[in-house]
Design a protein around this nucleic acid. Structure first.
Lengths: 220, 220
DNA sequence: GCCAGGTGTGACCGATCGGTCATATGACCG
DNA sequence: CGGTCATATGACCGATCGGTCACACCTGGC
């Protein structure tokens, strides 16, 4: 956790540090990311950063478990309760895509938890975040099953498959749709505007259609 | 590409180097992986390694584009041509899972190409490998569409969604089935034996069922 | 004016990295 | 034997890292 000094910082200085940290950790691995670089870019002496955080991991952990979720909640608001199960899922996916497009760095940062080559220092942290996401998604699918909208031979397997669809899968599709690579989207402010609500909705519909009905021909 | 000296090396020495390189690159990022460590573990002076490869990237590139695919082809053999589209897909997925379970380090190494935070040095390399995989999968799905077994509103989107299912998705499911984490599977020789052909087949069936029919209840 | 305590700062530390290079080794040839 | 050539080797280089620490600075209370 950050020290009290950190929270007493002038907002401009604090924001500079946090934003540069998000930038660095969102396009490099935890190990690859450089605290020296963050400090340099934020124009804050490295010694000062160590007045605010215990060490590199402390900063990373706080970003991943506190700051990023806070900003994400702020953007997403409460989940919609309208419509049937599949409509709600579609809305949820569309909102997720909006977040990905408006705050790609935050989305990347959170997605890093699923990185399978995670170093031992962050493995526990990443796993906890991952599991929490899966539990949440599983609850959604259980709702669907309870309402009779959804059937799965093994809900654990189904949960994980759906998670990869709406996680890395949709990210991939969005990038293809933008005709750009991840690092370009992270760097550019204008690129992401090209994926407006209309196209997002269309992609969300396709994703839900896939999850709901698969690719099997009606004839088969 | 390796130098001719490399290929003239005593097999035992060459194997030691290659195996340690696969081990290192399969549980760390390209940037995180240490050539010094590889050399140390293979008990080969670092200077010698530079007699065999131009630099770190040269070794990595050769592993990723030559050695790993060679070993994979060796393991998989020719694709089955029997049965209808969905049966063939199931067989293909089951074989992929077998490879994942028998050669987890090679599987990880290849999967690294999909890593989204890839450093600029390896970005082009990873992208090329990724695209090649997608083209291949797309051809398979086109076959399915041509034979009438499969229908998709947008084959590009479908290809990418299926790719994440049979890639990271199934890896995740397999890990859950093993009750282990990736690094444990990479380290252990016995863990992977717990996923025999029977259970692999069952998982492959579930995956194909998901891709073919989705999770929508028959009532809906 | 002076002290105390919170804060800012950058030189510094030891470790590790990718990569180089002068030198040693050893097999083959005349 | 001497000479040549491929190869082996590890000390060395500059850069970067995460982290520390002695010291400068400032503000408020006495």
């Amino acid at each position: 956790m950050p020290t009290s000094t950190f929270f007493r910082l002038p907002e401009e200085r604090r924001e500079r540090l946090v934003n540069e940290a998000i930038a660095e950790f969102s396009d490099r691995t935890y190990i690859e990311a450089s605290l020296s670089q963050i400090a340099r870019r934020a124009r804050i002496p490295k010694g000062s950063v160590y007045q605010y955080f215990e060490d590199k991991l402390d900063l990373y952990r706080w970003l991943l478990t506190e700051e990023a979720p806070r900003r994400k909640r702020e953007f997403l608001g409460a989940a919609s309760q309208e419509g049937d199960f599949w409509t709600r899922l579609e809305t949820q996916i569309e909102r997720g895509m909006a977040f990905l497009v408006e705050h790609p760095r935050l989305a990347r940062l959170s997605a890093a938890a699923a990185d399978p080559t995670a170093n031992v220092e962050v493995r526990g942290l990443h796993k906890a975040i991952c599991e929490a996401g899966l539990v949440e998604l599983r609850a959604v699918l259980e709702d669907g099953a309870a309402s009779g909208a959804l059937e799965a031979p093994d809900l654990n397997v189904a949960t994980r498959l759906v998670a990869t669809i709406i996680g890395p899968g949709l990210t991939d599709v969005v990038l293809q749709e933008l005709g750009a690579e991840l690092h370009e989207v992270l760097a550019s402010d204008s690129l992401r505007k090209r994926l407006g609500p209309k196209r997002r909705r269309r992609l969300a519909q396709q994703a839900v259609l896939f999850i709901r009905s698969g690719l099997g021909s009606s004839r088969s």
